[in-house]
């Protein structure tokens, strides 16, 4: 295989050193406890948790925040994760483009950088599945109760879970009716007294006002049920799958038919398709899948996966929330891809 890192560095010259041993906390904090079983954690003598780097994205973003230096970072190295197939380490190549404010251009460049890299590796016409968080806009425009909308949005990208929620929300009322007056001050006082009785430290966790507010909110959705036409809209949207040549028109027709608005997002979708086309990428190799997304909260916007000869060889997407979550004092955009080089070899074999 050619020196792909050198190839990528021509397009992404910036460098951040990512040691193999990483503090575990940022990964657990961003990806949740679920990750703990899949990474290799070791405790240092003074009780700090370290892990073998499970990815490059989070360390690079932390480096960007620390050095206050956005840019285009290419990397190549071994990452360590216990995968379902039993493998524990694999070679990853990738690029993170951080702080590029023209999101549409950056999205298209990200795809073209990846395809260029795959071409250099000998993968000629890979298949790409592309998703977008238009689902969140669709849910917003249905004007559902906030709690319901957020539960659905959080489940986006996990199709079984989303299905189960849709079944639940459309079959029966969500819970037993609660006789609570929507009297936030009175509820707040009641919670305050309960917290004092329990000797809960007042500043340590949820505040009485938040609890009271959510109680009122919860009471208001007890008898909520998704209406048939809302359920149909959601399910039919999730079923949209089209080559990128037709996806924009299909999505726009769907939003128009159901009067879902979101014009600026649809315009951005079209502009991104045009930007991808302008970089000489074949649109019929890319399939838009309305149900494709990632479950972690830091992903936003475009997400994609890439296959060659039926083997998943890489993926990527936009993570505009990640830098803020990691402590960046100002919001910063981010988009990137990674390629599993062992899988590329497998696909070429």
């Amino acid at each position: 295989m050619p020196d792909l890192l050198a190839h990528l560095r021509k397009r992404a010259p910036d460098v951040i050193d990512v040691p193999i041993l990483q503090p575990a906390d940022p990964f657990l904090e961003m990806a949740g406890e679920d990750l703990r079983r899949r990474i290799f954690i070791t405790e240092s003598g003074d009780g700090r948790l370290n892990c073998l780097r499970p990815d490059f994205t989070i360390p690079i973003c932390r480096g960007v925040i620390e050095k206050k230096r956005t840019g285009r970072y290419a990397y190549c190295g071994t990452v360590f994760r216990q995968n379902r197939d039993g493998s524990e380490e694999f070679l990853q190549l990738g690029l993170e483009d951080i702080g590029h404010d023209d999101r549409i251009a950056a999205d298209a460049t990200c795809l073209s950088d990846m395809l260029d890299c795959l071409n250099a590796a000998g993968i000629i016409e890979p298949k790409i599945t592309l998703g977008d968080d238009l689902f969140c806009a669709l849910i917003d425009s249905l004007a559902l109760p906030e709690t319901i909308a957020q539960r659905l949005q959080r489940a986006f990208g996990q199709n079984e879970r989303l299905d189960a929620l849709l079944d639940q929300f459309s079959s029966e009322p969500i819970g037993e009716p609660i006789s609570q007056h929507a009297d936030i001050p009175a509820l707040t006082m009641r919670v305050e007294v309960m917290m004092q009785e329990a000797a809960l430290p007042p500043m340590a966790g949820r505040s009485p006002a938040d609890i009271a507010e959510r109680m009122v909110q919860k009471s208001s959705i007890q008898s909520f049920r998704l209406e048939d036409h809302q359920l149909r809209i959601i399910r039919n949207y999730l079923a949209i799958k089209a080559p990128l040549t037709e996806a924009g028109a299909a999505v726009r027709a769907f939003f128009d038919t159901h009067q879902l608005g979101s014009d600026h997002l649809l315009a951005a979708f079209d502009a991104r398709v045009e930007a991808i086309r302008a970089r000489g990428i074949r649109l019929d190799g890319i399939t838009f899948d309305a149900s494709f997304g990632r479950k972690l909260e830091y992903y936003t916007g475009m997400q994609f996966e890439v296959f060659a000869n039926g083997v998943a060889i890489g993926g990527g997407g936009r993570y505009d929330s990640l830098l803020t979550l990691l402590g960046s004092p100002t919001p910063k955009t981010g988009v990137g891809f990674s390629i599993a080089l062992d899988r590329v070899a497998e696909a070429l074999a």
């Binding site: 009641r190 917290m195 609890i211 919860k218």
Partner: peptide
């Protein structure tokens, strides 16, 4: 969970609370 969490009686409630915890209190 604490009894004073009068709004939390199911795992789904706990999911809601967990999801917004960091935004509200700066930690998980």
């Amino acid at each position: 969970v604490p009894q004073s969490w009068i709004d939390v009686s199911t795992m789904a409630d706990l999911d809601d609370v967990a999801a917004s915890f960091r935004a509200r209190y700066g930690r998980r």
